[in-house]
Amino acid sequence: MEKRGNKPDEVLDSRKLSCPVPELKTKPAISKLEIGGILEVICTDPGSVKDIPAWAKQTGQELLEVVHEDSHYEFFIKKIK
């Protein structure tokens, strides 16, 4: 997928972490942002492709983009509340 050019305000490196640790770390990371801020989460856990979007849907944050790189996934989440 082409990067849409979302510029993250913070980057959370969750590489090598397995379920559910990336999701557990995403919550405090997003709560540190201002409303409208963008968090990039980097994961290697293959389950994160479904888990991070589910996390965003349930918590009411907006998942802007998911980038599939060869070695990892990048999730761009916008804090909307």
Binding site: P20, K27, A54, W55, Q58, T59
Partner: peptide, 12 residues
């Protein structure tokens, strides 16, 4: 424990 911790992170 995994499910409970994840739920807490999802505002459940």
């Amino acid at each position: 424990l995994i499910l409970a911790d994840t739920a807490a992170a999802m505002d459940i």
